[in-house]
């Protein structure tokens, strides 16, 4: 079990750094799709000895939504956008990548502190989930374009999903389905909002929303 989780952790960290360091708009949804796929595999590996329909349903739902539907929606949005790259984020891509390394160390430290409370949770996944939450928040705060902010939101969601998949054992399905539904609605609302802002003003730069003041 552990080698698989180790590989998922490494690939998950890699996708996070790719999202932190990506310039082109097309790469964002693709890395997000890959990350969603990885996170969807976590519950299956965690419960590999006694697979229930609950777990399988949850994993399939997660993979379909975050690995296929959301990235597809985001790619469609991007196709309509008049620009092709994140022009100038508030923190440049070099700064973002460098930000990732101390935060990874911080995640390891936090995971070490949390281990006594979560004895059954595999350590590697704990690190990954905390790191994903940090990266998601960072993307939401530092990116100007709404598209990258939605991606940040979904990275955050992935982190919460992994955390619940390893920490909670009983009411997994109920909680997670609720969270998935929320994310589903949120992405569509955000997508529609971005589309309308874009078609109305011709840009998705959230920083320029102050221009709306009457």
């Amino acid at each position: 079990m552990l080698p698989f989780l180790g590989i998922i952790q490494a690939l998950g960290l890699l996708t996070s750094f790719a999202l932190l360091g990506t310039r082109s708009k097309g790469a964002g949804p693709q890395w997000l799709a890959f990350q969603g796929l990885l996170c969807g595999l976590v519950p299956i590996i965690m419960h590999a000895d006694g697979l229930t329909t609950q777990v399988v349903l949850l994993a399939i739902g997660n993979i379909v939504l975050k690995g296929i539907v959301f990235p597809w929606v985001l790619l469609r949005l991007r196709a309509r956008a008049p620009y092709h790259r994140e022009v100038v984020p508030f923190i440049g891509i070099v700064g973002s990548t460098l930000f990732g390394i101390p935060v990874l160390a911080l995640s390891v430290w936090l995971a070490l502190r949390m281990t006594p409370a979560l004895k059954h949770a595999p350590f590697v996944m704990l690190v990954l989930s905390i790191f994903l939450i940090f990266v998601g928040l960072f993307l939401i705060v530092t990116r100007r374009k709404a598209l990258m902010q939605v991606i940040g939101y979904l990275v955050l969601e992935n982190g919460i999903f992994v955390f619940s998949a390893i920490a909670i054992s009983g009411t997994l399905l109920l909680v997670e389905l609720g969270v998935l539904l929320d994310a589903f609605v949120a992405v569509f609302v955000m997508g529609i909002a971005i589309l309308h802002i874009n078609s109305e003003f011709g840009f998705m730069d959230v920083d320029q929303l102050t221009a709306l003041r009457g």
Binding site: Q9, A10, L13, F17, L104, V108, L112
Partner: peptide
Amino acid sequence: TLSAVAFIIILV
């Protein structure tokens, strides 16, 4: 970054 991640992973 890749090797820093590898180092942190292997450290614990």
